[in-house]
Design a protein around this nucleic acid. Structure first.
Lengths: 83, 83, 83, 83
DNA sequence: GATGCGCTTTAAATGC
DNA sequence: GCATTTAAAGCGCATC
C-alpha cells in the first residue's frame, strides 16, 4: 500500500499524542512557575510545606474543612494526642 | 553449552525476583488486613477518611505535628480563613 | 497600631497564596484538557492506559528507551517469561 | 461520670487505631525487606529500576502483559518510534 | 448493592 | 537529604 488502509488511524493516533504533548508542555511550564513562587516565598521566610497545605485547604470548601477538622480533633482528643 | 555460562546470573536473578515476590505477597495480605480494620471501624460509625489522617498524624512525632499545626494556623489566621 | 506591624508579612503571604492559586487554576484547566483528549482518543477506540505509556516513553530519549527495553527483555528471557 | 458515657467509643477508637498501627508496622518492615533485596540485587550488578518493572509485569497475567505489549508496539510502530 | 472506572491523594522510588 | 517523578491506593460516582 501507498497511503495504506490504516493511515487514518495512524494520523488520529499521532494527532492525539501531539495534542497531549503540547498540553503537557504547557503544564510543565506552570509547574515550574508554581515552584518559583514557592521558592520566592521560602526566601521570604515562609515554610513551603505548610504553605502547600494551606493552599490545598483553601481549595476545600470552608464548611468541609471545618467539619473535617472538628471530627479529627474529636478523635485525637479521644486518643489523648493532646495530653 | 549444557549448564551454560550465564546460568549463575540467571539463577541469581530468579532468586531475587522470587524473594521480592514472596515479600510482596505478604505485603498485599497486610494491606488487605488494614482495609478490613477500616471497614470494621466504618461499620462502627467512624469516619474512615479521618481515621486514616489520624493514623498518619500519630506517626509523626507529636512535636512536629503540633508545630506544623501552629504554623498552619498562623498562616490561615493571616489569610482570614476562620472569619 | 493602625495598619499594624505584621501587615506586610500578611500581605506577602496573601500575595504568594493567590499567585499559586491562579497558577493552580490554569494547571487544573490543562489537566482537564489532557483528560478530554484521552477521553476522545478512547472513544476513537484507543487504549488510554497504553497511550499514556507511549506518551511517557516518547518523552524519554529514544536511546534510553531502547536500552531499557533491551535490558528488560534480557531479564525476562532469563526468567522464561516468553516460553 | 467516672468511666463516662463515651468510654466505649473511645476504647473502640483506640483499638482500631492500634490494630492499624500494628499492621502498618509490619508492612513497613516488609517494605524495608523488599528494598534490601533490591539493594542486594543492585550490588550483584542488576538494574533495580528494570527489576521492579519485571516484577510488576510478572504480576500481570502473562496474557494481559502480552496484549499490552502488542498494543503498545502497534502504537509505537504507527508513530515511527522505531525508525 | 456490588462492580468497574476515573479522579484524587498518598506513598515510594529516582536522581540531583 | 531533598526535590521531582512515578506508582499505588483510596474514594466517589455511575451503572447495572
Amino acid at each position: 500500500m501507498t497511503e495504506g488502509s490504516n493511515t487514518v488511524a495512524k494520523d488520529r493516533l499521532l494527532s492525539f499524542v501531539q495534542r497531549v504533548e503540547r498540553l503537557e508542555e504547557e503544564k510543565s511550564a506552570l509547574v515550574g512557575d508554581i515552584r518559583e513562587v514557592y521558592a520566592e516565598a521560602k526566601s521570604s521566610g515562609f515554610d513551603v510545606k505548610i504553605l502547600r497545605q494551606v493552599v490545598r485547604r483553601r481549595a476545600m470548601e470552608a464548611q468541609d474543612r471545618q467539619e473535617q477538622d472538628a471530627t479529627r480533633d474529636m478523635y485525637e482528643q479521644a486518643l489523648g494526642m493532646f495530653d
